[in-house]
Structure formats: structure tokens, C-alpha cells
Nucleic acid binder design. Structure first.
Lengths: 226, 226
DNA sequence: CCTACCGATCGGTAGG
DNA sequence: CCTACCGATCGGTAGG
């Protein structure tokens, strides 16, 4: 499978590939995929260009591998921790909270992943554009499924339109990001207040008392046992 | 002043400059500012590169002129029509409605202006990034002022935080755009329903009966007298 | 992984 | 507005 190591993960080739992709993600997240060139990558890594072609057969292959690496980082920071929490409105809240955290903690050192990349490539053809919209769809599917699960458990009113709710929540997340980039005008605290208000207006009486607490508890758990 | 014609607006130089910038806006809005190169522009316009340098002294100057042209298009399609309507919640609604229309009517032939460009450049230094954030600030200021004016007229509850309201509205707009690009999943009708619901929840009893009607009426007015 | 090289294109200039 | 040119960089290849 593409991206899966043929050699053991500690091998020299694997390590080198990892170093290259980490740098590629950094460049692209700061300055966009357009700023990612073989020559620049080689210079920053003190390698020859042909050395890079030994790892990636072509420029598009490098771009796709870079996107895949960024997706793995996003999964690690947002999707996987949320999936580890209880299904329902708690997981829905965790998805929103973790998304905000991945901005606040600058998991990507620029504003490009994935919001900028999506708006730049969404209307275009080709495999790179498809990969970017695929990542956006994966995220949105997780968000919508969390809404549906919360409805299935009776924690969100059954007459709410799950898809519409998911889009509104994502709109608030992107809106926060926009305001944050524009003039640091909206804090994470304010964004969370708005999102919690929206979730509480959708919630029934069946919501667990600690449903809106668990992310930080889960992070404590992670750090407690290495 | 930069961008202001020194010669009469019908002169050959002016017309040529206009043709060049229209093409530049098209390229950038489809594929991003990064795809805008002198060579490509020259080829598409059947001109020599040095012919372009006669109009724009440098690449950054061309980029800034392209952004300014795009801003003028946006002003014409969104800000100016809204400013022509009654101040207050009516103008606020018109700003949102016209913003949605500028997406639906594909005023820019790609998704890049201005949402994509903003997320790509917001975190970067330099005059181009400043120009892009300046456009975003101009738009947001108009939106926030419309909220404040509506409050001043007693049409929106006085205890609402105007800035927060403006950010939430813009979040819904961008969220609609995101959903629209992802899978044409949200229609303009649904987006307007959500925005009107939000505006009505903020409104007092003093809102004019036809406040949420005027944009289409105004457009009819425009087309009626050429 | 390297050196050495390819044709194409980049932003830009000289001179008219 | 043009032709003719510049050095730098682009993605990519040959051969080791």
C-alpha cells in the first residue's frame, strides 16, 4: 500500500522519508502546497534533488505523500482522541474542542492546512484536489456521524437535521479560525461558549452531566501513562 | 494615486490595462495567486512579457493591482448594493444575502477569492498578505457596523455583542461556502433560512415588515433603469 | 543516496 | 508595445 513501509519502520530509508515529509508538511502548511518544490526541499534538508527523487518518483507523488502525512497528524490530534471518548454528544463536543485545540496549539505551523488548501483546490480537477477534498469529507463525516449517534442515544432532539447541524458547527469553527487570524479578535474561550450554547440548545435531558468535560480528562489520562 | 488612471479612462493604455487585470483576476481566482505568472499572462493575452512590464513594474505590483481589481469587483457586487439599502437590520441581511449571491452567481470563477487567499496568506508577512487581510477587514468592518447600526435603531437587542454577532454570521457564510464546495450539500435556500433564523432571534419588535425583502427589490430597480 | 546534465519557465532588463 | 537576452530555478533523467 502506498505510504506503508516495505522495510522495518526503524530503517534508514524510513527515517529519511519521515524527515523529508515532516519538512514538506512544514513548508506547505506555512506557505501553501504551491511553495513546495523539490529544489527548495533539497536545499533545506542539505540533500540533492535526485536524492529526493529516490524517495518520491514525481512531484505529484511528493504532494500526495505530504497531504497524507498532514492527514495523519490531523487524525492523531483530532479524530483519534475524539473516537476514544464516549459516543454521543460528548464525542461531538470533543470533536469541536479538539479542532479548536489543533489551531490553538499550532499543530500545523501555518493557516494553510486544511482550510486554506480546501478553498484553493476544491474547484479544481486532479488527484491533489481529490485528496484534499477527501480529507475534508473524512472530517465532515466524523462530525455528522457524531451528531447522528447523539440523536440515536436520545441526547439530541430527534427532529434536528444532523447534516445541517454538522455544517453549522463547522461553520462556527471556521468562523473562529477566520476571526482568530484576522485580529486575534475571538478567543478560544468565546468560541467554546458559542459552540456549547448551540449544543445545549440541541440537547435533550438525557445528556450525561460530565459530557462537556471529557477532553481534558482524556488528555490527562494520556500524559499519565506513557 | 496608485491604480487611478493618469490618462482618460477610454485611452488605449487604460483599456489594455483593464484587459490584463481581468485576465489576471480570472487566473488567480481559479488557481490561486501562486498560479499568476507574467509568462502565462503574456501567452494567454498574446503579448510579450516586456509588454506587461510596461504596465506593471514588477511581479508584486501586478499581484497588488490584481487584488485591487478583485476588491473592486467584490465592492460592486456586495458592499455597494448593501450600502444603498436602509441602514439597520435590513442592510445587515442584505450584506449576508449579497455575499451568498456573489458565490452563487460565481462572480469570481473560482473558490479562491477571498476565503482561500485569506487562509493562505493570513499568517504571512509582506505587502500582498497585508492587502488580502485588508480586504477581509474591510468586509468585516461593514458587517460589524451594520450590526451596530441595527442596535442603534433598536432593531437588534441592545445586550448582544455586535462583534460576536458579526463573527457568527460570517462563520455561517463561510460554512455555507465550505458545504457548497464539498458536495453541493447545502443550498442557498437552506443557508438563508439559518441566517434569517439567527437574525430573527436577535431582532426586537421594531424591525420593518419588509426588512428581509429588499435585495431582490433593489436588484429589480437596478435592472429597470439602465 | 551522489554528480552532472536536460529543456522549459521564472522574474526581469537593454535597447529600441 | 516589440526582440533579444540574462541568471536562477523548475521538474526530471542518466549513470553510477
Amino acid at each position: 500500500m502506498l505510504g506503508t513501509p516495505a522495510s522495518p519502520s526503524g530503517s534508514r530509508g524510513e527515517q529519511s522519508r519521515h524527515t523529508i515529509l515532516a519538512r514538506a508538511v512544514r513548508i506547505a502548511s506555512r506557505e501553501g502546497l504551491g511553495a513546495l518544490t523539490i529544489g527548495r526541499l533539497a536545499k533545506e534538508l542539505h540533500m540533492s534533488k535526485s536524492g529526493l527523487f529516490a524517495h518520491f518518483q514525481s512531484k505529484p507523488a511528493l504532494e500526495l505523500a505530504t497531504l497524507k502525512t498532514a492527514q495523519e497528524v490531523f487524525d492523531e490530534a483530532v479524530l483519534l482522541p475524539a473516537q476514544a471518548s464516549r459516543a454521543g454528544i460528548e464525542r461531538l463536543w470533543n470533536l469541536c474542542d479538539l479542532w479548536l485545540q489543533h489551531i490553538e496549539e499550532r499543530i500545523f505551523p501555518g493557516a494553510y492546512f486544511f482550510t486554506g488548501a480546501f478553498f484553493e483546490y476544491a474547484d479544481r480537477p486532479g488527484p491533489v484536489a481529490r485528496a484534499i477534498t477527501g480529507i475534508a469529507k473524512q472530517w465532515f463525516r466524523a462530525l455528522r456521524q457524531a451528531v447522528e449517534e447523539a440523536q440515536g442515544r436520545g441526547e439530541i432532539h430527534p427532529d434536528a437535521d444532523a447534516q445541517q447541524v454538522a455544517w453549522q458547527l463547522h461553520g462556527q469553527l471556521v468562523g473562529f479560525y477566520w476571526a482568530y487570524l484576522l485580529e486575534r479578535g475571538m478567543s478560544g474561550r468565546e468560541a467554546r461558549k458559542v459552540l456549547l450554547g448551540r449544543l445545549r440548545s440541541l440537547a435533550t435531558g438525557k445528556v450525561p452531566a460530565d459530557a462537556f468535560e471529557s477532553v481534558r480528562a482524556w488528555k490527562r489520562y494520556l500524559k499519565a501513562q506513557p
